[in-house]
Simulated scan of single mutants.
Amino acid sequence: MPTYAYRCRECSESFDLMRPMSESGAPAACPDGHADTVKLLTTVALTGAAAGAPAPAAGGCCGGGCCG
């Protein structure tokens, strides 16, 4: 289940919630009970390690040298 990061606009606290992707846009109250929150954009690093294989060292446009 994915984890989503939120920030409360009332108390400025940041918090994370694990919830299904189908509920990613649903409102989330902060731990102090405030309802005025905003979902934060986060980045996720993806590697081949999750599939049991190392990430390729080169390839694609920028990794393969075809860009320039």
Rank of each mutant, 00 (worst) to 15 (best):
T37P: 06
L17W: 02
A51W: 07
A55L: 12
R19L: 00
A53K: 15
K39A: 15
G33T: 10
A49F: 07
E10G: 05
A50F: 12
R9E: 05
D16N: 14
Y6M: 10
R19T: 09
L17I: 15
G64R: 03
K39Q: 15
P54L: 04
R19Q: 03
V38D: 03
G64M: 01
C61S: 13
C62L: 11
P2V: 05
P20I: 00
P20V: 01
D36N: 14
C67V: 11
L46Y: 06
T43P: 04
S22D: 07
A58D: 02
P54G: 06
G52M: 06
A5T: 09
P31R: 04
Y4E: 05
C67P: 05
A51E: 07
A45W: 05
A50Q: 08
S14G: 14
G48N: 09
A50T: 14
T42C: 05
S12C: 06
A55R: 10
T43H: 04
S24W: 01
P54C: 05
F15A: 09
T37F: 00
P2G: 09
A28L: 03
M21F: 09
A58C: 09
L46R: 04
C30M: 05
A26E: 15
G64A: 04
E13I: 09
A49E: 08
E13A: 13
A50S: 12
